[in-house]
Design a protein around this nucleic acid. Structure first.
Length: 361
DNA sequence: AACCAAGGCAACCGCGTATTA
DNA sequence: ATAATACGCGGTTGCCTTGGT
């Protein structure tokens, strides 16, 4: 409840770190691990608050940080995850293992956001700004659903985090020999990866496997209507050896609706997948992300002609501006579905390539 | 060469939440 | 059950650099 007074103390230094301070912090952590951040500055002989030390370490001194320009792949990852998760920088950062959440946040704010905006895409919703045009055919509803998905995902992340913590606790009890965080590949644990290390194998991988299975099933497609379970529903709870988690914060009932939905006649990666919220919210996730993927790719492959799905859609007016295929109506459904499939494939690729300790999957 | 504006990044601030007493 | 403490996260700020005039 109360707030930490650590930074209010007088006599503590603020502002840029000097090389000497860096050296002290580095030396101390390498020898002892960070332990309690609050206690660290005194022990390390630093006139800084613990918070400042933690920040300096996680954003700059950690040895596993990659600096410099973001690759195209990294940009793509950021944009796609941002479309899904919003400003959840730490979660996004877990999929870019050598980047810090702060760096990603800065990069988003200074580069990607502007680039999106310049192309007429709302960086918050990842939709074309003149999306009003879409509302008539129900796509704005889909956008709203996407946001709903993001909230849902948020709740899921929280549940996972709790799960992991508990598993970690249990694991710690089983083998209480890990004195310092540094003892294990420190990742020195980026703030988020710390959480995940221990409990993960028990609790998270099945989730991932399940997710992957679903994706495989889906890509084999044809048989529309598989009854897909969401990652969360899997998390909820088929796990046997993990600590039984408390109910996730949001949903008193998260369930997946089968393919009885609207889109089962199409060949989709996530065909037949619907998300049901406590309010019995029901929709297909397909079109939700389809739009943004189109624009994401447009953004990344701006001049790339192999981005077929959009360029084919020539009557869109091409550019990010009005694009969105608005009309799309009947004729371009196929493009949408193709886009959608690509989108989910890329997300699934992310899942597949994500570090095993990612709290996200 | 000097000034100014914009961009980029490191660091700080404050809030939410988990943990502990 | 409650309050205090500690940590992590996201938003914001401020300084430094770069580019333009």
């Amino acid at each position: 409840m109360g707030r930490s007074p650590c930074c209010d103390k007088v006599g503590l230094k603020k502002g840029p770190w000097t090389p000497e301070e860096d050296q002290k912090l580095l030396a101390y952590i390498e020898e002892h691990g960070h332990g309690s951040w609050r206690a660290l500055p005194a022990k390390a002989g630093l006139q800084r608050c613990g918070k400042s030390c933690r920040l300096r370490w996680t954003n700059y001194l950690r040895p596993d940080i990659k600096r410099g320009k973001f690759s195209l792949q990294e940009e793509q990852t950021i944009i796609q995850l941002h479309a899904l998760l919003g400003n959840r920088w730490s979660a996004i950062a877990t999929h870019l293992p050598k980047r810090t959440d702060n760096e990603i946040k800065n990069y988003w704010n200074t580069h990607l956001k502007k680039r999106l905006a310049k192309m007429g895409i709302d960086p918050v919703t990842h939709k074309p700004k003149n999306d009003a045009l879409l509302s008539s055919d129900g796509q704005s509803k889909n956008a709203a659903n996407l946001s709903h998905m993001a909230q849902w995902e948020s709740a899921r992340l929280e549940a996972e985090a709790r799960l992991v913590r508990e598993s970690k606790l249990r694991s710690h009890n089983n083998n209480n020999n890990n004195a310092f965080p540094l003892a294990n590949p420190p990742g020195y644990a980026s703030s988020s990866s710390v959480v995940s290390s221990a409990g993960r194998n028990n609790s998270m991988d099945p989730l991932k496997a399940h997710w992957n299975n679903n994706s495989n099933n889906c890509s084999n497609n044809n048989n529309g209507g598989g009854h897909l379970e969401s990652p969360t529903s899997t998390l909820t709870f088929s796990e046997t050896n993990a600590v039984q988690p408390p109910p996730p914060p949001m949903p008193s009932m998260i369930e997946f609706v089968g393919s009885s939905g609207l889109h089962h006649q199409h060949d989709l990666s996530m065909e037949g997948t619907s998300w049901t919220s406590p309010e019995s919210f029901r929709t297909t996730s397909a079109n939700n992300v389809m739009i943004e993927e189109g624009f994401t790719n447009l953004l990344l492959n701006n001049s790339d002609d192999h981005h077929r799905s959009l360029s084919d859609n020539s009557d869109n007016g091409g550019g990010g501006g009005d694009g969105s295929g608005s009309g799309s109506a009947a004729g371009s459904d196929d493009h949408y579905y193709e886009d959608n499939k690509n989108y989910w494939n890329s997300i699934l690729n992310l899942v597949n390539s994500s570090p095993p300790d990612s709290p996200m999957f």
